[in-house]
């Protein structure tokens, strides 16, 4: 099918774009890489009156790594994936982004678009949650920053107001002694996750000082497994600890049964993946290896 009719704008400045959004409000949709929006339009699951194409906006296709990671709204997923400096400052992003769709999708899809689209099984929201990321939102009357924890509200629903554009997503620098891991099970290469996990641990003096365990595909948004995190903090990283934390993580979520997997299977996957992820992350933290 083809989309229902809409009016198309391709503003050349951010102000112009924000002005259009201020006028059209929730009758408008922003078009970035189009890899989620265009299928929705073609299947007529979305039928906005207005499309605001932000691809002509200047200065938004950046990836910087001098203080943490900053990714502009027009930086394609492939750009982030191939950037060697990203691997150094945020290896979890590099590890996870290869799981986003297929290469063709990543050549057009934007990282910020993934966050704005907020599919509960998508990889980037999960990673930004695990790494305490932030979204930079702009509107005609000003700007604000929203933490990933507050940004993801429900299935494909975020803290974005209709008149706002997310101009950038950023991650703070990772403390020394940190290691991370990303694991996913999908039915096929390139599919959205049946379940995915991201873990980050920071080790000081032989103990876990900080832990982030984030779960994807097992709730309406990516989730923090807080009980698992609490179990880990201030402990020595041992196999028994990982077993317990993984079990806790599997009870920190309420997965549902759908056509791609049962709730029980997803819970079991979470347990297995968190267990494996913790093992990997700790090794990486100790060796300083990428990840």
């Amino acid at each position: 099918m083809k989309p229902a009719p809409f009016t198309y704008y391709d503003p050349h400045t951010l102000d112009e774009a924000l002005g259009l959004l201020a006028v059209h409000g929730d009758a408008a949709k922003i078009l970035a890489g189009g890899q989620s929006l265009v299928p929705l339009l073609n299947m007529r699951l979305a039928a906005p009156d207005v499309i605001v194409d932000i691809n002509r906006l200047p200065d938004l296709d950046f990836v910087t790594t001098d203080n943490g990671l900053r990714v502009g709204a027009l930086a394609r997923q492939a750009m982030v994936e191939r950037d060697a400096a990203v691997r150094d400052v945020a290896p979890l992003v590099t590890e996870a982004i290869a799981w986003v769709g297929h290469r063709q999708i990543r050549n057009r899809g934007t990282l910020v678009g993934s966050l704005a689209h907020a599919d509960p099984a998508a990889e980037m929201p999960l990673v930004f949650l695990a790494l305490d990321g932030e979204l930079h939102l702009r509107r005609t009357s000003g700007s604000r920053r929203v933490s990933a924890g507050d940004f993801f509200v429900h299935i494909m629903t975020t803290a974005l107001d209709p008149e706002e554009i997310a101009t950038e997503a950023s991650l703070p620098p990772v403390p020394p002694g940190s290691g991370s891991a990303f694991l996913e099970v999908a039915r096929r290469h390139g599919d959205f996750a049946v379940a995915a996990i991201a873990v980050v641990v920071t080790i000081e003096a032989g103990r876990i000082r900080r832990a982030r365990v984030a779960l994807g595909g097992v709730g309406p948004t990516p989730l923090r497994a807080t009980r698992a995190e609490e179990r880990l903090v201030d402990e020595e990283p041992t196999n028994e600890l990982f077993v317990e934390a993984a079990l806790a993580a599997s009870h920190d979520c309420e997965p549902v049964t759908d056509i791609h997997g049962t709730a029980e299977y997803r819970r079991e996957l979470v347990r297995t993946m968190v267990y494996r992820g913790l093992g990997r992350a700790v090794v990486r933290a100790r060796t300083g290896a990428a990840g």
Partner: peptide, 15 residues
């Protein structure tokens, strides 16, 4: 319930 290539899973080259 799965009348699309997204939800009906034929293998792709990488699989």
């Amino acid at each position: 319930l799965n009348p699309t290539f997204m939800d009906y899973k034929i293998l792709c080259a990488a699989d």
